[in-house]
């Protein structure tokens, strides 16, 4: 008789962590895992616009889209975009955080100024830059007397879009880096200063290593985000000119929204997932070597 409640309690205790996890896992299961597994399954089928599975074709859908020049271009563009945006926005975020590190009288103003872009929706931001980028009558060219075709020149278009993304995610990086920089112990900096370390040495030997865990978090989340970018392209270029700005997500979106072509969209999504996973793995590799935990 005495044993029962005890084993019950034991059972409860061993179940406890799962109970804490249950809400998150149930929601993930319903809204991410289940549909994603379904996507994997369906990626082996010809699927018509109404979602009916027509024919099982093994990996044919994969080979079909991988032989599509536009899709291959989309993969290249996506990687290029990620390389353009992720490191630069992190470096900018770090620099801004260093500028703002010391609290000064006007801190409140410029801290807010640096961070506010993180509150912007990317589609909305895209519209504002669209206006700024207008070649003949827009502000940028008009004010500086340039004649740049920001979004119509296939060589520049992706960079113009990357600039917007950098603008958006620098604010996000800044706010995280600011707290990381501020939590570097004062005595560490003091002792370095006493040792006569230059500002630059302080940066590379103290600030960079001690804030690397935060940087790691930012890079991992931003990698996934950049690999799945679409909204900017959607508003600004629709993938053009000459497919110079088409990203994997934009490719998928076009397949889905225009003709409901899941036959192409499903395998493309799986490929996007694998690529993002691979990119994140690289991030985790760096964690092993370059990230310093106190």
């Amino acid at each position: 008789m005495n044993d029962r409640p005890k084993s019950n309690r034991k059972l409860l205790r061993s179940l406890e962590p799962y109970l804490w996890l249950a809400p998150a896992m149930i929601l993930f299961a319903v809204f991410t895992f289940y549909p994603f597994l379904e996507t994997i399954y369906k990626s082996f089928f010809i699927v018509d616009a109404l979602g009916n599975l027509k024919r099982f074709v093994w990996f044919q859908n994969y080979t079909y889209i991988l032989s599509d020049k536009v899709f291959v271009k989309a993969i290249g563009n996506t990687l290029w975009y990620t390389i353009l945006t992720v490191p630069i926005s992190k470096v900018f975020g770090m620099l801004l955080a260093l500028f703002a590190n010391k609290r000064r009288r006007t801190s409140v103003f410029y801290e807010a100024g640096f961070a506010v872009p993180m509150a912007m929706a990317s589609s909305v931001t895209a519209m504002i830059f669209q206006l700024l980028y207008v070649p003949s009558l827009g502000f940028l060219n008009g004010f500086f007397g340039w004649k740049v075709q920001w979004l119509n020149n296939p060589k520049i278009a992706m960079i113009s879009i990357a600039v917007i993304q950098i603008w958006l995610s620098t604010g996000y990086a800044f706010i995280f880096m600011l707290s990381a920089v501020r939590s570097v112990p004062q005595d560490v900096i003091e002792s370095a200063r006493l040792d006569g370390a230059s500002e630059f040495r302080q940066l590379t030997k103290i600030f960079v290593p001690l804030t690397s865990p935060t940087m790691f978090y930012l890079i991992i989340t931003d990698l996934a985000f950049s690999m799945m970018m679409m909204s900017l392209v959607n508003v600004l270029t629709d993938g053009g000119p000459q497919n110079s700005t088409i990203t994997i997500m934009q490719y998928i979106y076009k397949q889905i929204s225009a003709t409901g072509n899941y036959t192409n969209a499903n395998p493309a999504a799986i490929i996007a997932f694998i690529l993002t996973l691979a990119a994140s793995m690289l991030g985790f590799l760096w964690e092993k070597k370059g990230v310093h935990y106190q």
């Binding site: 962590p17 991410t32 549909p35 979602g51 998928i252 889905i256 993002t276 994140s280």
Partner: peptide, 26 residues
């Protein structure tokens, strides 16, 4: 624990737009 955490992180890497119709169905 490790598996569940890995699964959690993997949800960041799943392209959300592809799941939309499936979720709409649900």
């Amino acid at each position: 624990k490790r598996l569940l955490f890995a699964l959690t992180l993997s949800t960041i890497m799943v392209p959300p737009d592809v799941l939309i119709v499936s979720n709409f169905t649900t």
